[in-house]
């Protein structure tokens, strides 16, 4: 087992363990900060799939944008919101049991499918060229954005403006929402 494998499985374990902690944690602030750890480790996993630009975008957008947004939404809201976040009743609920059961069964289905599929023998994979470590994938992404994926890119920009206006409208102070 080389260094690559060790680092990969370290980050994979970090993603899964911190995600599990986020989900079971009662304290919301702690769970948001652990969400940060999980997203950062996920960015490291993207690097192992040779997607440097995606990893960078993940760090900038999630760690820089989404997380700060969540913390701000959390801290700008008044004290009652924080108080209402305390768990109403503790103990193991039927709701929890059903949720665990459904997620475990779903995990079982996914793992069975992944294990049974021969992923390295897919048809399209035989003909396609894999990304090499020395390739400049950011350069490639720039070219793709302006050629084959120009329409989704433009739609996305219009959509982002709509979201910006919508979110600002929803979050404005006073008046009817």
């Amino acid at each position: 087992m080389g260094e690559e494998q060790i680092i990969f499985y370290f980050f994979a374990a970090s993603v899964l363990i911190s995600a599990l902690c986020v989900v079971v944690m009662k304290n919301l602030v702690r769970s948001i900060f652990l969400f940060f750890v999980s997203l950062f480790s996920l960015a490291a996993l993207y690097l192992f799939a040779l997607a440097d630009f995606i990893a960078l975008a993940q760090v900038v957008i999630y760690a820089g944008g989404v997380l700060v947004l969540m913390l701000f939404a959390f801290m700008l809201s008044n004290r009652e919101l924080l108080n209402s976040l305390k768990p109403a009743g503790s103990g193991f609920k039927v709701n929890h049991f059903a949720g665990i059961l459904i997620s475990l069964l779903f995990l079982f289905i996914l793992v069975t499918v992944i294990v049974k599929t021969d992923l390295n023998q897919l048809d399209w994979m035989q003909e396609s060229v894999p990304i090499h470590v020395n390739d400049n994938s950011t350069h490639q992404i720039g070219i793709h954005t302006m050629t084959a994926y120009l329409l989704p890119f433009e739609i996305l920009s219009v959509f982002l403006m709509m979201v910006l206006i919508g979110a600002a409208h929803l979050a404005r102070k006073g008046g009817r929402a």
Partner: peptide, 19 residues
């Protein structure tokens, strides 16, 4: 997307999904 350098669909849609 690691296995598809020519069309680059995986990485492009990953980027769109993140946004």
């Amino acid at each position: 997307g690691k296995y598809d350098k020519i069309s680059g669909g995986g990485q492009m849609f990953a980027l769109f999904a993140i946004v």
